[in-house]
Amino acid sequence: MRHLLSAADLGRDQAVQVLDVAEQMAATQQREIKKLPTLRGRTVVNLFFEDSTRTRISFEAAAKRLSADVINFTARGSSVSKGESLKDTALTLEAMGADAVVVRHHAPGAPHRLATAGWTRGSVVNAGDGTHEHPTQALLDAFTLRRHLVGGTVPGAATGADLAGQRVVIAGDVLHSRVARSNVLLLHTLGAHVVLVAPPTLLPVGVEAWPCATSYDLDAVLEGAFGEPDAVMMLRVQRERQNAAFFPSAREYSRRYGLDVRRLGMLPRHTIVMHPGPMNRGLEISAAAADSARSTIVEQVSNGVAVRMAVLYLLLSGRKDPATGPVVTGGRTGGADGATRKDRRR
């Protein structure tokens, strides 16, 4: 593995390997001494063009627990969000010798550009690119699902297993959700059945081609229209979406698509409730659901560190083979020849 840009970069065995390594990482995090010397001398740059303290801290903790040097680069504001700064920033990081660049960017595909445009030789980890993908979030969700649904909540008990046959409902603003995109890809790879539930306005045109089922009716899905759900993942919905007519009002959204007390009561006993955070309590999820015993929301956060440790370990610990190309699929790379400045003789 050279980069982690999309959940689609991982095949079934590779994904299981990440989860297995994450189990070992999680075990080390139960010890008194949590720090491992594994990535000593390696430099990990957290390149965040978008505010996300939670994700940045998670990656930072993961890198530091593995003894990597961590440089945080947070670029906020409209002037730096202009395109050329991505390239210039990448060149700066390259000059500083970054072995891995963890990038969060508002533009879909920005991590692909970093990985393929020839601006940096480091491994690129997509920490969320606009409405495209967030593969480490999907990995930590898969990790959480596997522990609960396959391993009977015993750490390590599910080692080697995938999520074959598990039914996962993902409900909310799928259209704008990088979490949903990565989860659909990864959970499908791991053998789970995913049902997306959203109002039609919040499902992308073209969703029919995704490897999952879709529904507009949360009640029907929870009642088992696609089989008994093993997990229900609620996606964040921004209240501002009502201004763009994605739904008439927050109240109506909550009534039709929120995980309220009534719907919580419809769930089978073993079903877990997940949320990638940050939550809008009272909109897509009720306090009762968020704080219930079924909720894995806090656990998801701690699993995030273990999964990110695993990703950094797998990307950075081995020999870097210069001949190995990037894992990106499809299309040509932008890169050097297109970028040459023209000779402007008159």
């Binding site: 395109g83 050329e84 550009r113 606009g130």
Partner: peptide, 12 residues
């Protein structure tokens, strides 16, 4: 010019 394409998709 190169700088208007040598960037991320959205900004190009």
């Amino acid at each position: 010019p190169a700088e208007d394409k040598d960037c991320e998709w959205d900004a190009a």
